[in-house]
Design a protein around this nucleic acid. Structure first.
Lengths: 138, 138
DNA sequence: GTGTATTTGGTACTTTAGTATGAGTTCTTT
DNA sequence: AAAGAACTCATACTAAAGTACCAAATACAC
């Protein structure tokens, strides 16, 4: 949020400077008007492209925001959600165990519970359903 | 492609018109230079936003269409792609076999080849990678 | 502090997934 | 028609994944 304010401040300053500059140059009369207009056009075009990109990014990334209501409905615990996300990245039980510093048995228990709660039979289906329900960040 | 040329033509015409208009108005001397610059700035800002949106849309929406080049690069056959899509829906080898009217052995062979070509070890990873490479419709 | 839910872990077992190898069939390309 | 790629299927095997059942440590609310 601080960065946004910072960027906007710089932007406004830049715009005002451009305005002043253009006025000043016109009065002195030794620069062609086309040049100034060209510069302004390019600058604002770039600004337009840049700001649009930023706003679109902001909309895309927070799709990572998860449906916490549905998670509660399904009764998924924190740990189970972690495991579910690990499954979604394509990791094996063994790899998940190493990543979360627990035994493979524990992971298997979690996986079993996840499959039950999501009402599916395989981990691949779990990933599919989790995506549909938007309870994972993918 | 035709539409792109059409849009660009209109754009260039609009820009030239603006230039001429600005020059004309300055000569007549009864409009303030700030107004003209402001209009140009706004117009080019809008153009920037619009064009950026279009180019981004072109990249995002046809994600439903698959990267056929990459499929060829990887050497994936038609059947293998079908199996890959089935895997992505969370189906088991047995279920895929029934869906495609072949034996489970055949499916296993396909899956093995897919894993090799995608350079992964598990079907869950294959789904993950296939999504990244945009070779499945998900 | 008592009870409930979570997290952890184990054993034993069944099922599914994946590998390796070989081979017959179909389809296309030259 | 011959070569090569793609598709098919089988057997035998190893490796994961998943189930069932149990149990202890921890956390947390009441």
């Amino acid at each position: 949020m601080k960065r946004t304010i910072f960027i906007f401040t710089i932007l406004i300053v830049a715009i005002l400077t451009l305005f002043q500059l253009s006025k000043y140059t016109i009065i002195s009369g030794d620069t062609k008007i086309e040049m100034i207009i060209g510069v302004i056009a390019i600058v604002f075009f770039v600004i337009g492209v840049y700001m649009n990109k930023r706003s679109l990014h902001r909309k895309r990334l927070p799709e990572g925001s998860i449906d916490h209501k549905k998670i509660k409905e399904l009764g998924l615990s924190k740990r189970e959600c972690e495991v579910l996300n690990q499954i979604a990245t394509g990791r094996s039980n063994q790899e998940i165990a190493e990543k979360l510093f627990v035994s493979e048995s524990t992971v298997k228990t979690h996986v079993s519970n996840i499959l039950m709660k999501l009402d599916v039979k395989r981990r691949t289906q779990a990933v599919q359903k989790a995506k549909e329900l938007q309870i994972i960040a993918f």
